[in-house]
């Protein structure tokens, strides 16, 4: 599958992603530095002291020069120091938060695709029965309720009511204890994040399956005497996956956007939470690092989707 052409294509895409990330980082850098206020606004610094502090961190220089200085470090993985927690290097913080978010987002994506495709296939296989109607209804509810609403309900149900009902024996602990979180700690937020998108996947998988099982090649598969299970999973499902993969890019973006809200609601120390807090604190360097990572993440995710696309459909070659 990995032909020379494919490798060249991947190389080109990576180059394109690099340019996009660069452009995003500059735009965000310029925008954030143009906001009124500064990182030291709470520190009762005035006049010459403030000017000296600004000068120390190079914040008095023209924006293009500041950007150039930032970029020189960023290329080496050094995103500078935090301006809120003074002199704390950002890179370790941001990469740690990034891995937390990746776990959360990965779990949500797994729920989205796993649950979504399984339910979609079942609904299609049982078309127009109560099973289908139940699953379709859940799918509609799923993608009608935004993840932040679902998250709030989950906090209430699993964090508060369950605690009260079981007298603290079994509930979802709302306070994230460690830095990385356990599977239990990840579970509820990941479900809150993934259920919304899994509703969309269910709907698309069901429609694709219903379309595919009417195709001539399914008739051929049946005429060959294959088991029904094999006809559905090997012949129908692989073809039905093509439209699912084609919306996977937008789904991943939805999950990333959703994670910002979910992390803040559940108090998860991830990129999404940092994203909001750093902006509020005027912690330019962290905000820019987070933005840049998001841009890179979305670019790479879309590339992976396109590679998956070619892996599933042999007619697509780059």
């Amino acid at each position: 599958m990995l032909t020379r052409g494919t490798l060249i294509y991947i190389g080109q895409r990576l180059l394109l992603i690099a340019f996009t990330v660069l452009a995003v980082s500059f735009a965000v850098f310029a925008a954030l530095h143009s906001l009124p206020g500064n990182p030291f606004v709470n520190e009762k610094l005035h006049g010459a002291e403030l000017a000296a502090q600004m000068h120390l961190y190079g914040l008095d220089l023209p924006i293009p020069i500041q950007y150039w200085n930032w970029l020189k470090g960023a290329i080496h993985g050094d995103f500078g120091v935090s301006l809120a927690i003074l002199n704390e290097p950002i890179s370790p913080i941001v990469f740690r938060e990034f891995s937390v978010s990746l776990m959360l987002g990965g779990a949500a994506l797994l729920i989205t695709l796993g649950l979504g495709t399984v339910l979609g296939v079942i609904a299609a296989a049982r078309q127009n029965t109560w099973v289908d109607y139940t699953l379709t209804t859940f799918a509609v509810i799923g993608y009608s309720v935004p993840s932040f609403v679902l998250a709030s309900v989950f906090i209430l149900v699993f964090g508060v009511w369950l605690f009260n009902v079981t007298h603290g024996a079994f509930y979802y602990p709302l306070n994230w204890t460690g830095t990385y979180g356990t599977i239990e700690e990840l579970s509820i937020p990941a479900i809150a994040l993934g259920l919304y998108t899994s509703g969309q996947v269910t709907r698309i998988t069901r429609a694709a399956m219903l379309d595919v099982i009417q195709q001539d090649y399914i008739r051929t598969a049946r005429a060959k005497g294959l088991r029904q299970r094999i006809v559905i999973l090997r012949h129908a499902f692989r073809n039905a996956l093509i439209p699912v993969v084609s919306i996977a890019g937008p789904l991943i973006i939805t999950i990333i956007v959703g994670s910002v809200v979910i992390e803040n609601l559940f108090g998860i120390p991830g990129l999404g939470k940092e994203f909001v807090e750093s902006i509020l604190r005027h912690d330019y360097n962290i905000a820019i690092a987070v933005f840049t990572l998001y841009a890179a993440l979305i670019g790479v995710a879309n590339l992976l989707v396109d590679i998956a696309y070619a892996a599933i459909d042999p007619r697509i070659r780059y």
Partner: peptide, 25 residues
């Protein structure tokens, strides 16, 4: 019946493009 299909009685169809699964060799 599944074992009659394809083993004892085989069938070929009108449109050979749409009758072959595009994602399998």
């Amino acid at each position: 019946l599944r074992h009659v299909r394809g083993r004892d009685i085989a069938m070929i169809f009108q449109d050979p493009l749409s009758s072959l699964n595009p994602v399998l060799s």
